[in-house]
Computed example of a mutant assay.
Amino acid sequence: MNIINGRGYIALFKKLYKIKKQHKKEQKIYQQTIQIFPQFKYPDLETCPDYSEALRNKFHLSYMLGEVLIKADINKI
């Protein structure tokens, strides 16, 4: 990506938008699927064997940046 002249940022935002759009589509399909087949529902996170490791990863820089981006998108800052 060529960040010097700004095209890299534009490409990044386009890619993030595509990811967001795909995620929303997959969420909708998942909700429809578990209504028909409730046995396919994901287990609670607390029951996963690596749950404690996931809690530690919440304090990683990339996780926190992603969390800020998600909140900004929700609040439309």
Rank of each mutant, 00 (worst) to 15 (best):
Gln22Cys: 04
Gly6Ala: 01
Tyr51Gly: 01
Asp50His: 10
Lys24Ser: 06
Asn57Ile: 07
Lys21Pro: 00
Asn75Trp: 11
Thr47Leu: 12
Pro43Asn: 01
Ala11Leu: 07
Ile36Ser: 03
Tyr42Lys: 14
Val68Ser: 10
Asn57His: 14
Leu12Phe: 09
Tyr30Gln: 02
Gly8His: 04
Glu67Ile: 01
Val68Asn: 08
Val68Pro: 02
Gln35Asp: 12
Tyr9Val: 05
Ile34Asp: 00
Lys24Glu: 12
Asn5Lys: 13
Ile10Thr: 13
Ala54Phe: 09
Leu61His: 11
Phe13Tyr: 11
Gln22Thr: 08
Ala72Leu: 14
Arg56Ala: 14
Tyr30His: 02
Lys14Phe: 13
Gly8Gln: 03
Leu69His: 01
Ile19Pro: 02
Lys25Tyr: 13
Gly8Tyr: 05
Ala54Cys: 07
Asp44Trp: 06
Lys25Pro: 00
Val68Gly: 00
Tyr9Leu: 13
Ile70Glu: 10
Pro38Arg: 01
Lys71Gly: 01
Ala72Ser: 12
Val68Ile: 15
Gln32Ala: 09
Ile34Ser: 02
Met1Tyr: 08
Ile34Met: 02
Pro43Gly: 00
Asn75Thr: 05
Lys25His: 13
Pro49Asp: 03
Phe37Gly: 00
Phe40Gly: 05
Leu55Gln: 06
Ile10Ser: 05
Lys71Ile: 04
Ile77Met: 08
Phe59Lys: 08
Lys14Asp: 12
Lys21Gly: 00
Arg56Leu: 14
Asn57Leu: 15
Ile70Thr: 08
Leu16Pro: 00
Gln32Cys: 05
Gly66Val: 02
Lys25Ala: 06
Ala54Gly: 05
Ile4Asn: 11
Glu26Tyr: 15
Ile29Tyr: 15
Ala72Tyr: 07
Glu67Gln: 08
Asp73Thr: 09
Asp44Ile: 03
Ile36Trp: 03
Tyr9Thr: 05
Lys20Thr: 10
Lys76Ile: 04
Lys41Gly: 07
Ala11Lys: 09
Lys28Gly: 00
Ile74Asp: 07
Asn2Ser: 09
Asn5Pro: 06
Gln27Phe: 08
Glu46Trp: 10
Arg56Tyr: 14
Ile34Ala: 00
Leu12His: 06
Tyr30Thr: 01
Ser62Ala: 10
Lys15Tyr: 13
Lys58Ser: 08
Ala72Arg: 13
Leu61Arg: 11
Lys76Trp: 07
Glu53Pro: 02
Ile77His: 07
Leu45Gln: 10
Leu12Lys: 13
His60Asp: 12
Gly66Lys: 03
Ser62Cys: 08
Leu16Met: 14
Ile70Pro: 00
Leu61Cys: 03
Asp44Thr: 06
Gly66Asn: 01
Ile74Gln: 13
Pro38Leu: 01
Leu16Gln: 09
Gln27Val: 07
Tyr51Pro: 01
His23Thr: 08
Ser52Gly: 02
Pro43Ile: 01
His23Lys: 11
Ile3Lys: 15
Asp73Gln: 11
Gln32His: 07
Lys14Ser: 06
Thr33Tyr: 05
